[in-house]
Nucleic acid binder design. Structure first.
Lengths: 218, 218
DNA sequence: ATTTATTTTTAGACAAACCTAAAAAATAAA
DNA sequence: TTTATTTTTTAGGTTTGTCTAAAAATAAAT
């Protein structure tokens, strides 16, 4: 139905739309590492396929059909990530590129059987919700760790970015998806936090780090 | 390293070479459903990449490097087929097309972890051997069911073709890879065989069918 | 050994997805 | 409200992998 290139554009528009309603050519160009002129070409193509609404010079957004397609791709991406971590023992910080390839395998039967095999997981290893076969996303009342008061126990559910620097830091501190922890102290001077990792050691993290970690009460 | 199109050509040369040393342009054209002119173009390209040896008008064969690449692709194809049948409950007659897509996922780490997850299987669901990480194929002393004497117990290891008609017939008779059976009678009139499926019912199959079923002693 | 038929290659085109350079539109600044 | 800057689009090219039509090489038949 769609080429790999088309699917990557659709996914990029979806992600950028989380930030702002209308997505600009330049934003897509940066996200996809292609030149603006190439983006314009593809937008014209996707418009004729009724996947996006697009008026020259005024940005794009996904049509309802486009959203469906995007959720299908994201579903595949996140299910494969879950598979790689849960079944094949990949580190959760090394699955992204492989999942970028696997998400373009077309068989819907495969996706649905994979979903069943994994036990219909609701969140991927980064804590992001996995759309179900109808495109529905589980919503999670998640908050930033930087806003959690002292002595409350929470569980890490997501990270605000996928940068390898961030993932490296989390690994070093012994933090991952599902880690339970309690905020012990908050230092007013620099906003750094002292955390007690459930039944384990105490670590200190910066305010910058606490501001990209999503948690849920437990 | 290689594009999907290149990999499909390499795989096709490998398969056709099982029949005859030198592979012709026309044979590749038929196998890949492309025109002979397109095949010639690709052969020139693969020659410069030192994947095949090719002299105009005299056919091609894989270089030793080309064989390595081919075995890598076949390894992925067969491991994925095993995964689909063993873990995702696909019928063994419906995995081929999906595996045709999955075999082009590049990560070798993925392949090796998948291999481990599956328990290093030696044969795929069609009974074909799966190359190990060094490209070695398990050889199997397999014989045709039509040559097995009465009262010997054997296990089905492979089928001589992948035609959907054959696969449908096998499914109907309750025969699949790994099925153990004993030859009960051989009717001289038409060469048909009566088989007792291990601890189950008795079925009769034609000589034509027995001539495409590979088995091993058990 | 010629002629005929088949197979294979060359030549020239096309669509997809990218590119650079230049023009046009929109936005911000003077 | 002009002018300058940034953003986006158009115009024209490139590469990959395919195609058709025609030419060349090989194989088969008389």
């Amino acid at each position: 139905m769609f080429t790999v290139a088309e699917e990557n554009y659709i996914k990029a528009v979806y992600h950028l739309q989380q930030q702002q309603e209308m997505v600009s050519t330049n934003a897509l160009s940066a996200e996809l590492q292609t030149r603006p002129a190439s983006v314009t070409d593809m937008l014209k193509k996707l418009k004729t396929k009724r996947i996006i609404s697009y008026e020259p010079y005024h940005g794009v957004k996904l049509s309802s059909e486009g959203k469906k397609v995007a959720l299908g791709i994201i579903r595949k991406h996140r299910l494969w990530e879950y598979f790689l971590v849960d079944k094949l023992q990949f580190g959760w910080d090394e699955v992204h590129e492989v999942a970028e390839e696997l998400e373009h395998i077309s068989s819907t039967k495969l996706v649905d059987k994979l979903d069943a095999f994994l036990g219909y997981p609701k969140f991927d290893p980064h804590g992001d919700p996995i759309p179900d076969s109808k495109g529905r996303l589980a919503s999670q009342q998640q908050e930033l760790l930087s806003g959690i008061p002292i002595s409350k126990t929470v569980e890490i559910t997501a990270v605000g970015s996928q940068s390898s620097e961030l993932l490296e830091l989390l690994k070093h501190k012994g933090l991952q998806m599902g880690t339970r922890l309690e905020v012990k102290k908050i230092f007013d001077f620099d906003g750094s936090l002292e955390l007690k990792i459930k039944n384990q050691q105490v670590v200190t993290i910066s305010r910058d780090l606490a501001s990209v970690l999503f948690v849920k009460p437990v």
